[in-house]
Design a protein around this nucleic acid. Structure first.
Lengths: 153, 153
DNA sequence: AAAAAATAGTTAAGTTGTTGAACTATTCAC
DNA sequence: GTGAATAGTTCAACAACTTAACTATTTTTT
């Protein structure tokens, strides 16, 4: 690839990923904003989809320190959305689960987000959106390797 | 499109956009994190690329209240990165510009981000990355229309 | 088996980014 | 010229984050 083309693509990517993220998060917030923050929703989503989820795992996935997870889990446990249980074999470990209220709130929010994303996704032709998501998933892998490289060095 | 396919695509999109955003922001932070936050870098970038930039415009682009912009601009003005000047014709209006120090800091950060994005983008074939960015840009338009619709209703 | 190192999680202080309501200052509209 | 709209700021409160110090365990080493 030509260098000038690469520079153009970089600029377009940085600009557009910023724009899309801002707009998307704002639209999600409009859907779910009264009961949950976007971050809280993502936390509930991750716990719900995970077999058994620990604060360390969340810190890893969300790319933040463990103390940030303690804080957000505290807030949601206070609201009765999340429960902590200790591992009986290794009593250092805490497992996070959704309470019934947490699950219900999550699912209601999730439905709204699905409707939102559906109304957007269906404006594209099937091959285009499939190709887009495929490349997006490749990009995630590339970023993961980048992270691993760093740790290796 | 089949409903089950749509549901699958929605799930994949929500999952992957979250993952990519977290990893990407984390990698950017590693590059520029000592002097600037990611948000502060995006603010500098926007001001630099804009002809003449006001707090209201920033609030609009960043999808936050104007008071959030006041706060972030205060912090960066205190650090000597941004300057405020009043419009002489309409004295309500404030124009934001980069100081020489702000410009220098921004450009150093921008170079690092460019190298990062370049090292990622070049792992894709040209047609794939072009198609990806094209769809991404379409997505931004769809989201903008969505926003406009809401305001219209 | 005892001491040292590693791991999981929490606490506490301080920073950044955010909202929403109340406010000042200015300009526009009739 | 008065009333409404606009641009921006201030303030209080909160969410999310970092770093460092800490507790409580488990694992490793010797």
């Amino acid at each position: 690839m030509q260098d000038s083309l690469i520079q153009e693509l970089i600029n377009r990517y940085v600009t557009i990923s910023f724009q899309v993220h801002k707009k998307a998060e704002s639209l999600i917030k409009e859907q779910i904003g009264n009961d949950l923050t976007n971050d809280q929703h993502y936390i509930l989503r991750y716990i719900d989809q995970s077999e058994s989820c620990t604060p360390t795992e969340l810190a890893d996935v969300f790319e933040v320190n463990k103390s940030a997870i303690t804080a957000i889990v505290n807030r949601m446990a206070d609201k009765g959305l999340i429960e902590r249980t200790r591992d009986l074999n290794d009593r250092r470990v805490v497992y996070l689960t959704l309470t019934p209220e947490g699950k219900e709130l999550y699912q209601k929010a999730q439905e709204k987000i699905h409707l939102l994303v559906e109304s957007i996704i269906t404006q594209f032709e099937e091959p285009e959106i499939k190709a887009f998501i495929n490349t997006y998933e490749k990009l995630a892998k590339v970023l993961n390797n980048k992270k691993k490289e760093e740790l290796g060095e």
